[in-house]
Amino acid sequence: MTSAIASPPRDAGSTLPGTRLDWIPLALIPAIALLALPLVSSLPTWVTLSVAGLAMGMMIFMMASGLTLVFGLMDVMNFAHGVFISVGAYAGASVLTRMTGQMQAESVLSNLSAMVPAVLAAIAVAGLLGWFFERVVIRPVYGDHLKQILVTMGGMIVVEQLIHVVWGPDIIPLPRPATFTGAFFLGDAAIERYRVLAVIVGLAVFAAMWLLLNRTRIGLLVRAGVENREMVESLGYRIRRLFVGVFVAGSGLAGLGGVMWAMYQESVNAQMGMQMMVMIFIVIIIGGLGSVVGCFVGALLVGLLANYTGFLAPKLALGSNILLMVLVLLWRPRGLYPIGKG
């Protein structure tokens, strides 16, 4: 009885397309990789670059996904999203620098015993800051974009300064854990261990988000809320609570991305979040504001392109993502996966 709605009714023949994934943007990822292969001309180099690009893309995805969901759900653009990245990185670094023993040990388990608490600390501190930020800074300016931009910029300035107050003004060096340092060889291709870890974590985050969004009732609510907030409320759901949850989760994810990025860069500084913001904005614009799948595809495209151009034409590398954004917007003005606002 209860499963009546979960399973299709007898003789339910759906002649309309039911698949919701548009595969063309997804196909761009292998397309760009294959296009780069003859240009790079060396297979091992290409493999190395591709892994580096995927790793970078995965970390950008972690940092950007929360921002795009928050925008989709509540029409709020948080220009201070970058500070959650920085704060997460600092929180993680605080744990890691106290556990140098476990970090330097040549044992994966021992390394993980430092990294897991560091990652949890990053998520927790960034999430907590997100909760506070939503209540104090953003709540009074719902519906007013101009004030949102200004107030979140102000919040960014203040939190960045507070980072200096709490953690000091200097860059904190952050060595990678011993077993994730260096590279291994796949044929002739050198692959950095840490990058493989980043890809695994990124895939896990994406898979978890995808399952949450597509297989749970909360996910259903979030997807519906992104499309039409008013209608979700008219159906009797308190979307505010949902929004706070998404905001906190998104901030936590940014914190996770922050600590991952910090270990990748092997250092932490207060501006690192803001330095990522331009790239994050580009990624979520490319993906289509509000779309998690779009954000994922956009992040991977940006990551791959940055690494290929970095090798082929270093001078172009930093600007490559902007060129990509322009091209994507010329093709699809609302991004790869535009969200239909009902």
Partner: peptide, 26 residues
């Protein structure tokens, strides 16, 4: 106010707040 990106089924599932609707109602 249809959720265009959700299936027909998901639209109805969302509207049923208390429990999944029984076969008779459907």
């Amino acid at each position: 106010g249809i959720f265009a990106g959700l299936t027909v089924r998901e639209n109805l599932l969302l509207a049923a707040r208390a429990a999944e609707p029984d076969a008779k109602r459907l």
